[in-house]
């Protein structure tokens, strides 16, 4: 898998895809959606779709694709290569969502939670297949959140397509298993070859599974706290584990939308006049107030 684009910029979103097999533009196709790396506090989350003509589903099953979690890394790699070889009827596409994208989305002024981010990414990939001319007839999705609501939403979004959202879809439907293999291979490769945007020396790569409850991961996070910047962008700042380490071990940072006890409201013009109990005899002219200017009384 060619993740060079991710190496060039690991701060946003990176989309990779196979060529669309010609047959997929002619015949009705079945499409599976799955994700890898949703839980970890480190590295990207990958969403993948995999599709083939309904008429060739048996050939896909013959590859013995299975839920990626039940396969070893080498088995996943081998299966992914096989799918590439079967490029005449199997197609795939995936989005690598950088940890920075996840952090900035989830921590935004308007909170964009991981479920919404996941749903929108999945929807985007299905739309991408449609835009490329894939004749999608059926979509199978491993659920995120409540399957019913998710299914309703997807069905509304793609009225002409038969949508099935189900828990453990990656184990039940070979096309979802295939998608999960694509996602997992991409995620593993991205993590292994992570291109740190920061100029870091002697970074140790021994961060364990990347899951927040892994003691190794926690130790790695604690070791790599930078007091001002927090963590490298490899870390999802929005994870509670990361935030609680920052609270304890990094310098405090206040944003205008930070929630604090003493906050009167965002960006108050007059707030600094009320500091302490001192009342100014006259406020500066509005020219100065509108520009945040006041006469210096201290240096």
């Amino acid at each position: 898998m060619d993740l060079r684009e991710l190496d060039r910029d690991s701060t946003g979103l990176c989309r990779l895809n196979s060529p669309v097999p010609a047959v997929c533009r002619k015949e009705p196709c079945i499409l599976g959606v799955d994700e890898a790396g949703r839980g970890p506090v480190l590295g990207p989350m990958v969403y993948a779709i995999c599709y083939c003509p309904l008429s060739r589903l048996a050939d896909l099953e013959a590859l013995k694709v299975a839920d990626s979690k039940t396969l070893s890394e080498s088995e996943r790699d081998r299966l992914f290569v096989k799918m590439q070889e079967d490029g005449d009827f199997v197609g795939w596409a995936l989005d690598v969502l950088s940890p920075n994208l996840i952090s900035t989305s989830m921590l935004g002024r308007v909170k964009y939670n991981l479920n919404s981010l996941s749903h929108d990414t999945a929807t985007g990939l299905v739309q991408f297949a449609l835009d490329q001319g894939v004749k999608v007839a059926q979509v199978f999705v491993d659920t995120v959140g409540l399957p019913d609501t998710y299914q309703k939403r997807l069905q509304q979004r793609f009225p002409g397509i038969e949508v099935t959202v189900k828990a453990k879809a990656d184990a039940l439907y070979p096309v979802v298993s295939a998608a999960s293999i694509c996602a997992k291979v991409a995620r593993d490769q991205a993590v292994k070859n992570w291109h740190f945007v920061e100029k870091l020396q002697d970074l140790d790569a021994d961060y364990g599974s990347g899951y927040p409850n892994d003691p190794k991961t926690k130790a790695w996070l604690r070791k790599h706290v930078e007091p001002v910047f927090g963590f490298p962008q490899f870390v999802r700042f929005s994870w509670r584990t990361a935030q609680s380490i920052l609270e304890k071990e990094a310098e405090g940072v206040m944003w205008e939308d930070s929630l604090t006890g003493d906050q009167e409201g965002p960006g108050r013009i007059t707030s600094y006049f009320s500091e302490g109990a001192r009342v100014r005899p006259r406020l500066p002219h509005r020219y100065f107030q509108e520009r945040g200017l006041e006469s210096a009384t201290t240096l």
């Binding site: 205008e256 960006g267 108050r268 707030s271 600094y272 100014r280 005899p281 006259r282 100065f288 520009r291 945040g292 200017l293 006041e294 006469s295 210096a296 009384t297 201290t298 240096l299």
Partner: peptide, 25 residues
């Protein structure tokens, strides 16, 4: 205001400056 406020003298150029500070939360 009648309050103590910072000014800057440039004795070489014999000039007086006032100091405004931009301050925003």
């Amino acid at each position: 205001s009648g309050e103590g406020t910072i000014y800057l003298f440039n004795m070489c150029l014999q000039q007086l400056f006032e100091i405004k500070v931009f301050k925003e939360k």
